[in-house]
Design a protein around this nucleic acid. Structure first.
Lengths: 232, 232
DNA sequence: CGAGGTGTTGAGGCCCATCAACCCGTGTGG
DNA sequence: CCACACGGGTTGATGGGCCTCAACACCTCG
């Protein structure tokens, strides 16, 4: 079904979950891991499905979205190289809480849930690191919650772009470029607004020279001005 | 400074973080714990302060709120008996991300951050349970995020009450009562609306007989109808 | 009894979701 | 090689949900 690709323990060291672990532990994790290419557009898993694997990304980008029963969706986060995803259900109810889609060609590692659990039991440091990772995401979610409840759409869009810069900003000639393709709808779904409002806001900022958008890519020319907007 | 109260290992068994651990581990955790009464109204810790202790609640209720630089705040969650709070910063940046206030007389246990960390290192099950706890809270936060971005105020208030029923519903004569005092402002700050809108919605529902509010307490007479509203 | 925290209700208006129409670039198959 | 479909983006018009402002009633506690 899936091609068997030997997993190098060196690759594991780039995954935040396994950072600074002794080589023996990395080897152990590598032995249980399965590598797999994710062509652009591939749905890695579906919301509600039982979590058959726990995932980590070696390269590329994956979009995590959550849909309600009415079809309205939000963008939970983008997963980049070194980040884990779809790992929490291994320890809770066993169901993926969201959809995951590769938005560019990517490569993932994955583990059988019981293997990962066993690894965490044997090496408490892995479990502790996971608390830190999930804890930071919780903090970010609560921050977004507060912003969504209290701030205007343009402030939220500005914060959204600043966060994306933090996560995936690549310095270049005209400004800092966000490393992955980003549709207007994506920006809207993170900021908690509609495609139309996000489009108007970005068009206005492009007119003002704060940013440049080409194809599905954004280059931020003036993060300072964005910060000013995001603070009211 | 603080009265020394002997901590019973039996009390530890009621804390979800330590559920189903061998007695030896409970004794270990109990030996490092400090018990303390929290009189109603006491601020347990402040947002931004360095996390001097990690906390768990034995009895009573604690309100966790987060304020932005502009003063606007949201209610992150209520902490009830058996739940932990202020524990994540032990593993991340060491700063409390929110305020915590006892809303009724309560009793907490607390640990020195490095003691709790050492305990998690020695006993991976503790760390794993914490991932599960934090993971569930993350899932809930993302669900609220989606609802806030896509649903109307009354649907969100209905969902809010249903969640509070789940967490703290006590069956009684006129319906199910929420176990702790709850102001209109609290409901608004969870649902992501204003005191005024929340007040109007609850008044209307009280007129319709869906609920009764007395003092600062809510009794839900018809959860079914609330569920219908929450689903549109 | 006074003060402060809390809750209710009205009036007004604005932000932004919604509806609608159209444009553009890309890829694909006849 | 062109027609066409399709995903994505832009922009205008409109209206309503709910935030904001304001005034007042209520309760509880010192």
């Amino acid at each position: 079904m899936t091609a068997l690709i030997p997993v190098d323990a060196n690759a594991l060291a780039d995954i935040a979950l396994f950072a600074a672990l002794p080589p023996a532990v990395l080897d152990e994790a590598a032995a249980m891991a399965r590598a797999r290419p994710l062509p652009r557009g591939l749905r890695v898993f579906d919301q509600g499905e039982t979590a058959g694997r726990a995932h980590a990304l070696l390269s590329g980008w994956v979009r995590i979205t959550q849909a309600g029963s009415d079809g309205e969706e939000i963008l939970v986060r983008f997963i980049g190289p070194g980040e884990i995803f779809g790992c929490v259900p291994v320890l809770t109810d066993g169901l993926y809480p969201a959809d995951a889609t590769a938005i560019v060609d990517a490569v993932e590692l994955s583990w059988d849930p019981s293997d990962l659990l066993a690894l965490m039991q044997r090496h408490s440091q892995v479990a502790i690191t996971m608390v830190a990772i999930v804890g930071r995401r919780l903090g970010e979610a609560q921050e977004r919650l507060r912003e969504l409840a209290t701030q205007s759409a343009d402030r939220r869009v500005a914060r959204t772009l600043l966060r994306l810069l933090d996560q995936a900003g690549r310095p270049g000639g005209e400004g800092i470029r966000i490393a992955f393709p980003l549709r207007r709808k994506d920006v809207a779904d993170i900021a908690g607004t509609t495609l139309h409002t996000a489009s108007r806001i970005l068009a206005e900022w492009e007119r003002r020279g704060l940013l440049v958008s080409r194809n599905r890519h954004l280059i931020i020319a003036s993060p300072e001005e964005l910060r000013r907007i995001s603070e009211g």
